[in-house]
Design a binder for these strands. Structure first.
Length: 713
RNA sequence: GCCACCGUAGCUCAAUUGGCAGAGCAGCGGUUUUGUAAACCGCAGGUUGCGGGUUCGAGUCCCGCCGGUGGCUCCA
């Protein structure tokens, strides 16, 4: 006998070998009818699973539960794969898991699927669903299963099977066992039958590398979504549609915030007056915080010598994603090429290619000819020598980060432990030559401004400084009402992109994890997400189509102070190495604005709105008074516009409302006579007649508190 | 960078199997003096992203490029 414990605490006794499906009618008739899968001792399984252990905890998964939806979508992926195979028999299936909001199936198919094919695929899927065929699981010993897969010859499935754990491999037939119906190597679990998938839709097709490896061939990834009912699908599609309407790439230009221009360049943002006001307002908010938190402002240029970035490590580790260096001379360009060759060449002695390149350069330059190439010396010495030759005429790099400049400010004077922490802040503009396929909107750009700062402190001060930075990052998100974010502790992985000693990394990662633990916030670990110089804490926020972006960041760095040989004099009168914190609460201002536009759907709170009020005349008769109101608003530092055009008042209100202007001040003869204003909000509320001073005071109060709401009537 | 889709006036969209590039809004000029989301009349606006090709004829078909979009890879 098997003792089955249900979520409500009740216990049922059933014969060993009873399936979950057979047992469910004893739980509840509706559960028996609707359950899609079950959770046994925490593991999600098919309803056909037979119970054998003497004691089990059992929970039926109903269609409304997230766990069930995942199973249903996995089953939907099978149905889609079967449909595609039916239409294109040469299809080779790769991998088809459920994902957030749906599922996908990677396939290898010579025919490129297009949206035109979706209707055919969906029609075929509808047939399979209508047939209501059972999902039947069967298992084979690993060796027999491998033999079967090799016979079938799908290299991808063989690969999947080789990666799968366990002595047996499982297959799912979309039909009765031995029915000859379509089947797939699959761990499961699945819903009982295809008919249980109430609604499926093929969403899109995209390329995806096999194993996510860019050196492997590209497969086609067909995305779909599925729900238990057509109504739920319709609701989801409507939500997607609604979310798309807030896309900053659409409403940003519509609201006159920014433009992009192929003539200027991909990923280079032109901030128009309204967008510039938004930015400046955000920056003013940040500046206020910086002042309160003991930061000191600095200004530094947008470019620097290549050698600065050789020292920091930015160049050439990130060569591919930097704008190409600017060279003063051909000689510098060639010497830099030599430097790169030497860097990646032989550690002990120069490679022939290296020697040949030097000879080529030296032919044009007698001084180098005379100096000769130290081909037999170790790589460090060769590199040092090349940098010496370059010193007089090195190239310049458009800066990819601000830290090297700030580091040189720290290094520009002797520092005492009494000065620490030194917190240097700048809205620093950086340039990164992002891959063309990545650039888009405001969220991934090639020129951006960070609300950057670098803190130089002692090891003892580090924990407090990191905590202070996390606090500020949380605070700015809080002020914006951005509550839906995830926090990631970004640590290093086994990759080779990192600089510095293991000891430095261990100290830095310990510091980052300590701050996370002590912060009281929820967080997760992201291996391989660290910066090349240190681990970080990243604040991630989703955009309107569900993509997650890093906004704020707090980074701990023992390595750059070492590379730049930074120091301070301690209380012991000896030299010590400071620790650095890199931090940007907004991250990139471009990206932050993109997210902010979508967060507010363009309807910014009063304190952020590029134009806070529009004074609209009813007719020319009230124009003089309207101009007076306009001027009073201006003098009260309200960002205000005047519409005294010949349009009708309805049209003016419509125009201002479409621009999401928080307040329209309707000015007619009545208002002029009374010396008042008539206030209407962008959400269509008529707040009625109001004294000018009263209106301005109300606005001032909202702005001062950075209120997220426009006040009610 | 890779795979795919898209590109007609500032915006939203039309244009039969390849057969004269059009409308609304925005803009400009008039008329109207207006009361809470679109007054009326008129005018102008285009090398159909760019460049080649096929064809008697290309917005439409083919090739290349540019730009945008969705993914993948990358993201200091």
């Amino acid at each position: 006998m098997v003792s089955v414990r249900l979520p409500d605490g009740k216990t049922l006794e059933v014969a060993a070998g009873t399936s979950v499906a057979e047992l469910l009618p004893r739980v509840h008739s509706r559960v028996a009818r609707d359950a899609l899968a079950a959770r046994i001792n925490g593991r999600v399984v098919d309803l056909a699973t037979r119970l054998n252990d003497p004691q089990v905890e059992l929970e039926a998964l109903m269609p409304s539960e997230a766990g069930a939806l995942e199973v249903l979508r996995h089953s939907a992926a099978h149905v889609m794969a079967e449909a595609i195979c039916a239409l294109w028999p040469q299809t080779r299936l790769v991998y088809g898991p459920p994902v957030e909001n749906g599922f996908y199936y990677d396939i290898d198919l010579d025919h490129s699927l297009t949206p035109d094919d979706f209707a055919r695929i969906e029609a075929k899927m509808a047939e399979i669903v209508a047939a209501d065929r059972p999902f039947t699981r069967y298992e084979m010993p690993r060796s027999a299963a491998m033999e079967k897969l090799r016979r079938e010859g799908n290299i991808y499935k063989i690969d999947n099977a080789e990666r799968a754990e366990g002595d047996t491999l499982s297959f799912y037939v979309t039909g009765a066992a031995d029915s000859g119906c379509w089947e797939d190597l699959c761990r499961g679990p699945h819903v009982p039958s295809t008919g249980r998938i109430g609604a499926i839709k093929v969403m899109q097709v995209a390329g995806a590398y096999w194993h996510g490896d860019a050196s492997k061939q590209m497969l086609q990834r067909v995305y779909g979504t599925a729900f238990a009912t057509k109504k739920e699908l319709a609701v989801y599609l409507a939500q997607v549609e609604e979310a798309r309407k807030r896309d900053h790439r659409k409403i940003g230009p519509e609201l006159g915030l920014f433009a992009t221009d192929p003539m200027v360049g991909t990923g280079l943002i032109l901030w128009k007056p309204r967008g510039a006001v938004l930015r400046l307002t955000l920056e003013a908010f940040i500046r206020e915080e910086l002042l309160r938190r003991g930061y000191q402002p600095v200004f530094t240029p947008h470019i620097g010598k290549l050698d600065l970035y050789r020292t920091s490590g930015h160049f050439p580790y990130y060569k591919d994603s930097q704008y190409p260096p600017l060279y003063e001379s051909d000689r510098a360009r060639l010497l830099n090429a030599l430097w790169e060759l030497a860097r990646t060449g032989g550690a002990a002695g120069a490679t022939p290619a290296e020697v040949e390149l030097f000879a080529q350069i030296a032919r044009q330059h007698p001084d180098l000819q005379a100096a000769g190439y130290p081909a037999d010396l170790p790589v460090e010495e060769r590199l040092r020598r090349i940098r010496q030759w370059l010193a007089a005429e090195d190239g310049y790099l458009l800066r990819p980060m601000n830290c090297p400049h700030h580091i040189r400010i720290y290094g520009s004077e002797a520092r005492s432990y009494r000065d620490l922490p030194v917190r240097l802040a700048e809205f620093g503009t950086v340039y990164r030559f992002e891959q063309s396929g990545e650039v888009g909107g405001l969220t991934r750009v090639r020129g951006m401004t960070q609300d950057d700062a670098h803190i130089f402190c002692t090891a003892d001060q580090l924990a407090d400084e990191l905590a202070g930075c996390v606090d500020m990052a949380k605070h700015v998100l809080d002020v914006m009402g951005l509550t839906q974010y995830r926090v990631r502790a970004s640590l290093r992985d086994e990759g080779d992109k990192y600089v510095g000693s293991t000891e430095n990394w261990q100290k830095a990662e310990a510091a980052i994890l300590d701050v996370c633990r002590n912060s009281g916030m929820e967080w997760f670990i992201g291996r391989g997400e660290a910066a090349f110089y240190g681990p970080k804490i990243d604040f991630l926020v989703k955009d309107c189509i569900g993509r997650e972006w890093q906004l704020g960041t707090v980074q701990c760095d023992y390595n750059l102070p070492e590379r730049f040989e930074l120091r301070y004099i301690g209380a012991d009168n000896r030299e010590h190495r400071p620790v650095m914190v890199h931090r940007a609460p907004l991250g990139s201002i471009e990206r932050f604005c993109g997210i902010l536009i979508e967060h507010f759907a363009g309807a910014f709170p009063l304190w952020l709105a590029p134009v806070q009020a529009c004074v609209c005349t009813v007719s020319e008769k009230s124009a003089d008074y309207a101009r007076q109101v306009f001027r009073l608003c201006q003098q009260a530092n309200l960002r205000v516009e005047l519409d005294d055009s010949g349009e009708r008042i309805g049209s003016k209100i419509r125009t201002a409302t479409l621009l999401k202007t928080p307040y329209v001040l309707v000015i007619g003869e009545q208002e002029a006579a009374e010396g008042r204003v008539n206030v209407r909000t962008r959400d269509g509320r008529q707040l009625g007649s109001c004294g000018i001073a009263e209106f301005l005071a109300g606005c001032a109060a909202q702005i001062a508190t950075r209120s997220l709401e426009l006040p009610g009537a």
